[in-house]
Amino acid sequence: MHKYVLKRLILMVPIILGVIFIVFTITSLTPGDPGRMMLGMTASQEAVDKLNEELGFNDPYVVRFAKYLGNIVRGDFGKSYKNNQPVFDEIFARFPTTLKLALASITVTILIGIPLGVLAAVRQYSKLDMISTVSALFIAAVPSFWLALVCILAFSLHLGWFPPNGIGSIAHYVMPTFTLSVVYAASILRMTRTTMLESIRQDYVRTARGKGATPAQVIWRHALKNALLPVVTSMGMSFGGLLGGAVVIEQVFGMPGLGTLLINAIKMKDIPQVMAITIFLATLFCTIMLLVDILYAFIDPRIKARYTS
């Protein structure tokens, strides 16, 4: 197991390098230059050129990439073109907001999605099943920004229950969490239902019933654990996605999270900031997927056996 984890950690290095390469290349291919962005439209061309030269923007692509890699290895991710602060200052200032939103959303997602998915499978074709699968399908088809706007209209403008934007209090998080989690819960519900339907038809479930186990024991102890693997993967991916900044939702609700930071950095062509956020998120995502794989081993002993061999 330790060896497996170590192997996976080492494997993260080439993945991150790949991400760096791709994002760096894309940012170099986009038009515009940082000098103009920083100095504004009124600045003279000479000043802009001078700044671009200072930033090393006029060097050939390969040289810039090599310099950047060299800096990263030394732990220097550069300074934001926008405010001349180390890029990670801004990331760490904003990450808590994103993390809080992501944690709240994934928790609500699990609490709604899994129990409803299980019930829908156990009472297949019942009214509950119909209602939850149809509404899951509907919600999964609805764009999240639309849902967010409808929420703001209904709960902020008309009812005045929750503030429409900002992050001052817990109330600020209610609507963003709701909008994000219903969308993810819809897909988790459908997946749980499918895998549960499969697992409740397995022989070992019949064995459990044959022992005299209650329906609840059969479902929660025997069937669910076997149905959980694909659901856990999907949850890991969702969580990774949520941490990556629910870009649209943060924007709609005016939350200063990583998502809004990334969008603004891209707009400003703030290359060091874009790079740093991407690297940060990629690393986070890889770590979460590793945690998911480790979690697998605890759910399914057969997989654990494979890790150790």
Binding site: Y204, T207, G210, G212, K225, P301
Partner: peptide
């Protein structure tokens, strides 16, 4: 079930729960 009448199943490969 299980106490008064118990059953041995055809296929032991599938009748045990793999994760317990």
């Amino acid at each position: 079930r299980g106490e008064k009448i118990a059953m041995i199943y055809q296929d032991p490969m599938t009748s045990l729960n793999p994760v317990m």
